[in-house]
Amino acid sequence: MALFTSFSSIAHGIDDATKQFLESIEGAAILPFIYIGAKHMLTGYDHLLFLLGVVFFLFRGKDVLLYVSLFTLGHSLTLLYGVFSNIDVNPYIIDAIIGLSVVYKGFDNLGGFQRLFNCQPNTKVAVTIFGLFHGFGLATKIQEFQLPSNGLVTNIISFNVGVEIGQFLALAMVLIVLNFWRKHRSYLAFATLTNTAIMSAGFMLIGWQLTGYFIAAS
């Protein structure tokens, strides 16, 4: 139980050094919040796993741009709305839903909907909707702290800009690896194994977050 409590705290929280820094800020701090946003995205394995699933079978640049833009639009809207409107969302539950988004994309990439249900959900709509949940997940990170109203708008927008920078850097690294891998036969040969691993990681995230939720509630 102690292990799950510790891990779940890390999974949906912010490290102690960043926490101390945020709580000491007075006024606008553009560059620090950009850095914190970028750092959070680059170390946010749940967001990165979802993005990996989204771009795994996208071979054209314009398709990558479209889907990533839809995801960006979704999480930017709910990040800003969640913080400025002080929407109270349980961080464990929202992060469990983010884990579900990872499972969904891996399952979708495996053709699970067509094989089991003989249908195919609209992928663009799904990516946008899950982007909204990812944004609420990001908002819960900020809402854990009582940030002063002085400079709050500037700081939250800066955090969002940092998230987009981090996403761009992470996506660039993912695409470089994928483009290199796609030149080899092993790419399609291991596609099923890779997306099964993505699904498995998503289930683990769900389990960790729900465990954290029940421990916190007990």
Rank of each mutant, 00 (worst) to 15 (best):
N86I: 10
D15Y: 05
D46A: 08
G74T: 00
K62I: 14
N86Y: 10
L65F: 14
D15V: 02
T78M: 04
L22C: 11
K39G: 05
H47T: 09
L52I: 13
A17Y: 09
D16T: 15
K39I: 03
R60W: 11
I25L: 03
E23K: 15
V64K: 12
V54P: 05
V68L: 12
Q20V: 06
F71L: 10
M41D: 01
V83M: 05
Y45N: 00
L49D: 11
T18Y: 05
V89S: 01
I25H: 00
G74N: 00
L66K: 13
Y81M: 13
L79C: 09
F71V: 04
H75M: 09
E26Y: 00
Y67S: 07
L31D: 03
G27E: 08
L31M: 10
Y35T: 15
S76E: 09
F50Q: 10
H40G: 06
L79R: 07
A38Y: 07
Q20N: 15
L73C: 10
H47P: 07
H40V: 07
F71C: 03
G44H: 04
H75S: 07
H75R: 07
I36N: 02
D63K: 09
F56R: 10
L77F: 08
D88E: 15
S85L: 11
L80V: 03
V64R: 15
L31R: 01
T18I: 09
K39P: 02
G27C: 14
L49K: 03
G37A: 05
I36D: 02
F84V: 12
L58E: 06
G27Q: 13
V54R: 02
L42G: 03
L49Q: 05
D63W: 04
D16M: 13
G37E: 04
L66R: 12
S24D: 14
V83E: 05
G44M: 09
F33L: 15
I36C: 04
V64T: 08
I14N: 02
L73A: 13
H47C: 10
K39E: 05
V55T: 14
L22W: 06
L31A: 13
F56E: 04
A28C: 01
